[in-house]
Nucleic acid binder design. Structure first.
Lengths: 220, 220
DNA sequence: TGTACATCAGTGAACGCGCGTTCACTGATGTAC
DNA sequence: TGTACATCAGTGAACGCGCGTTCACTGATGTAC
């Protein structure tokens, strides 16, 4: 029988806000579940996440997450939204590093895009797996559109278009080219295709990115 | 109790090679399992495939696939290898449509790359999920490298490099830019990002591709 | 041409596992008076 | 300031399910003599 629990391995599972007292209430369970989910994603990708593992990691019962998030999509949407917030921040910082030159801003954003994907592969993977998320999650929708607007801003300035006007077809093409390029590079790198290519004589993976970024649109 | 099977719903599960006789031996089980797996991938993506569903579809016992493929990775590797064969064929045909102009060949390949991904989303998804495949599968290795060489060929001709020489850094950058661009576009399209973008005023998804392909490297 | 036997191809019941979800419950917290 | 009570937050056992894998088995096929 496997019904008895493994003895003596109980980690202190809740924070004790004052002194050593154990609380029935966790106090910050919502945030703790999000953090645990990020760890799970990092370790096993989207497929490695389950709605049981996250509470287990926090030391809480399997039914606890339902209280805060409903189901898996609810929890993952929260994680993805936080990912997009950080992503948008990274893109904005890169954009500022580009100074007054829109072409340089675009290249800096491209480098930051790939860097984010490689530094946070789990977040990145999840962020573009909307099928795992709740399409009605407002925070996710807003955060992702925030990130997109940073890219669109640089394209707009490169094309000399004012903020409100619709994009011209040429500007649209440049936006798609830039976005697709860095997005594809990130995927190829994460899927191991670039390592496989590096078996042949050629530049090291680290140099590949800057060689490619030379082809980000310079003018519109 | 659920032990009894649903009555009267047994499809004829094996081919009867001569007349109506039912064989104990399937005759073409290997191919049938591969075909069933492709259907499963199409319906539910990589996550929708299981090693039990494929034989169930063919009308064969759950332990049958082990005989031919060992495990899930073995079966999926076969599917991925066939996918890469078809992919390489599509790229080669596109390359030929480009005639004597290497830049045009590259653009045609780009269009074919995306078209293949959108027409065979399940195959495409699996082909770049090597974690689901057996890294030692020889057919898969060869088929994928065959596809890659079609792309490399056009880049080489665009740069005026002979077949055997290593790629120059500039040629490498162009190769990465072209590949990443179409690969990223395919992913963005399959993940629904382009549809989401199409909510705003802008070109229709069908036009997006050709607007982007204008940015495929034209010279090296 | 016939027969014995090895090998091949597939069966089907059984295993233990982790999953998502449900359910009646209980301990802690906040609020009204 | 004290008390009653509603609400909130989390428990833990139980459910039915589909999964991958194992196992002894058996029917069909191919080969040697």
């Amino acid at each position: 029988m496997k019904l008895s629990k493994p003895a003596g391995r109980k980690l202190p599972r809740r924070r004790a806000p004052q002194g050593g007292r154990r609380d029935y209430h966790h106090g910050a369970l919502r945030a703790a579940l999000v953090a645990a989910s990020e760890d799970l994603l990092l370790e096993g990708g989207v497929a490695g996440f389950t709605l049981r593992k996250a509470p287990r990691r926090v030391g809480v019962s399997p039914s606890a997450p339902a209280h805060h998030f409903g189901d898996a999509a609810g929890l993952l949407s929260e994680v993805a939204a936080l990912g997009f917030e950080a992503f948008a921040r990274a893109l904005r910082e890169a954009d500022e590093r580009g100074g007054a030159d829109p072409a340089r801003r675009l290249r800096e954003q491209g480098a930051a895009y790939v860097a984010f994907a490689l530094r946070h592969p789990a977040r990145f993977q999840l962020m573009f797996r909307r099928d795992k998320c709740d399409p009605k999650h407002e925070g996710l929708r807003q955060a992702s559109s925030k990130a997109f607007l940073v890219l669109e801003g640089a394209i707009r300035d490169l094309a000399g278009l004012p903020r409100e006007s619709p994009l011209t077809p040429a500007a649209f093409g440049a936006l798609l080219a830039a976005w697709s390029m860095v997005h594809g590079f990130a995927h190829l790198a994460l899927d191991g295709e670039l390592d496989r290519m590096a078996g042949q004589p050629g530049p090291a993976p680290g140099q590949m990115l800057s060689l490619m970024l030379a082809h980000v649109p310079q003018e519109i």
